[in-house]
């Protein structure tokens, strides 16, 4: 296939988290002063400090600016359809329970088109970390109104100001059953990294919302200045309150943003509930899906009668086609 995407690796100066990134895909597509890159950096730092087995870590994104994150992480990475990252990740986790699953996507993707999946995965307590970068707007498509757009903020589809009420995401996540809920801004790099580290080590449906500047659309449409001005705004208006009641975490236009870790509790995951229930009801008859997955392996190595083209011939030629064109 085409090789036009390949970049010359810039290896003169190694970035501290480059082992976690697909450096052959850098530069990324995000705008100057966008906060997503910062969130990715914090996540990569957290991975380094938690020492998780990266071979077992999968990252799943949907569509949108943050939906591109999976494409830059050097992990088993899935860039899926709009809104469906969470159910896709559910299949990965239930198919092979030893996997550690991170869903990394945006507000429009996860709680707009994917809102139903979000609440059900939280309700079931599917074991996954969901990182939601909230820039208050649909960035990739040009600044349309989001389910997170603060009331009165202008967007390209609410040119006279948004009259809808946005989601309070920590409250939504907590009320649906999330075991870990935190909110930070992309200015809070140390606290955000610490939250990622904690959340990676926990079990169940873990949710971290990161408020992040979109200078190109949100700030421009609302005459809020540059990305730097937004970071300044976070600096002046973010209030850390770990004990806040999640019901009080609405974000109003250009008003204070309450940050912190609001929920950190244990609750049996979907798989734990299923296993415990089946053990109780079915006893010895219950056979759980193996941790390494439900793949049926060929134990006796016989030729496959159905396969007209044996796998062997395929393998020997594959390396040829890789070096040249097909």
């Amino acid at each position: 296939m085409s090789k036009t995407a390949e970049q010359t690796p810039t290896e003169e100066m190694e970035h501290p988290v480059s082992p976690y990134l697909r450096m052959d895909r850098i530069p990324h597509i995000w705008c100057p002063t966008c906060g997503i890159g910062t969130v990715v950096r914090c996540y990569a730092d957290a991975l380094e400090h938690t020492g998780v087995d990266l071979d077992k870590l999968v990252i799943v994104s949907g569509i949108g600016c943050t939906g591109r994150v999976a494409g830059y992480m050097k992990l088993d990475a899935f860039h899926t359809t709009h809104g469906r990252a969470i159910p896709f990740a559910t299949g990965l986790k239930l198919g092979r329970s030893e996997l550690l699953v991170t869903v990394f996507s945006g507000d429009g993707d996860l709680v707009g088109i994917g809102g139903n999946h979000f609440i059900h995965a939280a309700r079931r307590n599917i074991d996954m970390l969901v990182i939601l970068v909230n820039n208050f707007i649909y960035g990739m498509t040009g600044g349309q109104n989001a389910p997170t757009t603060p009331t009165t903020a202008r967007t390209s589809t609410m040119p006279f100001g948004n009259f809808e009420r946005p989601f309070n995401l920590p409250h939504l996540a907590e009320s649906c059953g999330a075991t870990y809920v935190a909110r930070w801004t992309s200015l809070h790099v140390r606290r955000l990294t610490k939250s990622f580290r904690e959340a990676i080590d926990r079990k169940g449906f873990r949710f971290v919302e990161v408020i992040s500047p979109c200078a190109t659309l949100y700030a421009r449409l609302n005459k809020l200045g540059t990305g730097f001005n937004l970071m300044r705004f976070y600096h002046d208006n973010a209030v850390i309150d770990h004990n806040a009641d999640t019901r009080d975490l609405d974000i109003n236009f250009q008003d204070k943003i309450i940050c912190g870790k609001f929920v950190d509790k244990e609750r049996p995951t979907y798989s734990e509930m299923m296993h415990e229930h089946y053990r109780k009801t079915l006893g010895d008859k219950f056979v759980p899906t193996p941790e390494e997955g439900g793949m049926i392996r060929d134990t006796e190595e016989k030729p496959v009668s159905k396969g007209k083209k044996p796998a062997k011939s395929r393998k020997s030629k594959a390396s040829v086609s890789k070096s040249g064109k097909k």
Binding site: V60, F78, T80, T81, R84, P87, F88, A89, T90, G91, L92, K93, L94, G95, R96, L99, H117, T289, G293, G294, M295, I296
Partner: peptide, 12 residues
């Protein structure tokens, strides 16, 4: 979406 995810673990 879930069956695609599960299939990527090798599970039919």
């Amino acid at each position: 979406a879930a069956i695609i995810g599960a299939s990527w673990t090798g599970t039919k």
